[in-house]
Amino acid sequence: MPLLGPSSPPERALVPVTVVTPSRSTWPQRLVPYAFIALVMLADVATPRDVTFSSTLSVAPALAALVTRSLWQTIVAGCAAAGVSIGSYIYAHDLAGDVEVATLGAIAAVTVVSSVSLGLVGRQSRMLADVRSVAETAQHVVLRDVPPELEQVRTAVAYRAAAAEARIGGDLYEALSTKFGDRLLIGDVRGKGLPAVEAAADVLGVFREAAHTEADLARVADRMHAMLARRPVRDEEFVTAVLLSVDPTTPTVQVVNCGHPPPLLLRDGRVDVLAPVEPGPPLGLFDMADPPGMAAAPAWAGFAPGDTLLLYTDGTTEARDKTGRFFDLSGFLASRPTSSPADLTAQILTGLAAHVGGRLEDDVALLVVRRKPYVPQPAKSGS
């Protein structure tokens, strides 16, 4: 496995070894209940007068509710069914009156039940739409749009929450241009729901401020950990994260890994894993470090123009197919033709969807970073 060197100046850097609201009904859909009524009428005409199929007319309003999702269409279909039933009763002289009363009662009952059900479904749809709207707003507040162009890199982000109804989860990401170079973050909060969203918001808030003020990338991680330590105590709350700082004048990148899946470096058709020699503990668990309370030491790796880094959350590599086989992200990327960061995220999501063959079990976040040409440092004149 390719390793990153310990914290060192760039010149000593080590290169890796290798609601959904119902759609409006169409005219064919609206005609379905009336086509059913017409079939019942034809059946009554084609059979002896003492034989009637009018008792099945109660299906018409139910069909209208099912295919049109319209209250008025359901009521109109119920009225049409009742009218045809009365006509059938007049046509069939030998038909008992109590049969007609039962038929009309069934039509009325189905029409009322279908109308009430439509009202309840409509109310739930509106509530779900409101929840989704709030969730999407919260997500945009927590996870801002990452600019496709920073000072040193081009980026692309993809995010898929496992809880599709809420469209928000505990994964987080950010990319900023600072006086220390472009700085990037991806992370994963342990847990789900609002506590995970709150922790993600807190971590991102600290990163957005500290990335501009702390020259040492490890200090940025320390401040994020300190913020989590000040939060109300929750059982085993922590955040795995990878922080990157792209040096603006040398072909290098600084990495601080806090218990997160290591980035992948794509270069000339190869995929290298940037795994630290000493992986650090997650944010919130720095007391497990040596010395306690400190983040892992930063490490350096080569990051030349045209190189691509892929940061991801474990929902990507831990996605399983029907046989329980994990998604081989490195194998999927190996020898893949060079494409734009946005195209690469789309390809990964397509491959991931094909692998799982259905709904994701965990949130997935992808952050693709491609190095742009850099300005070399001026040579120092001899003394």
Rank of each mutant, 00 (worst) to 15 (best):
E165Y: 05
P291A: 08
A96G: 10
M41R: 03
A229E: 15
G351L: 12
K380A: 14
R144P: 06
V110K: 00
P147M: 10
R30L: 04
R325C: 07
V253N: 00
V375S: 14
F332L: 09
V113G: 10
A196C: 12
Y374D: 03
P10H: 01
R231N: 14
F327Q: 01
A156W: 01
G83N: 08
T345D: 00
G280F: 02
V116G: 12
R12H: 12
T74E: 05
V141G: 08
T178L: 06
A226Q: 15
D94Y: 12
D44W: 02
I107P: 03
V112S: 09
I107D: 02
A62W: 02
S381Q: 13
A304R: 14
R126S: 10
E136F: 05
S115Y: 06
T249N: 11
L265R: 10
L71C: 02
P373L: 11
R359T: 13
D362T: 05
R223H: 15
V242K: 04
G119M: 10
P195K: 05
P248W: 03
S8P: 00
L360M: 10
M288H: 12
D314Y: 08
P22K: 11
V203K: 02
L265M: 14
Y159C: 01
R336T: 02
L104E: 04
V368A: 07
V116F: 13
H355R: 11
G105H: 08
H260S: 01
T308Q: 08
S58Y: 04
D363M: 09
L95R: 13
P10N: 01
K380V: 15
T47N: 14
V256H: 08
V51W: 10
G302I: 01
E237A: 15
A215G: 13
G205F: 04
L3N: 02
F53Y: 14
P292N: 10
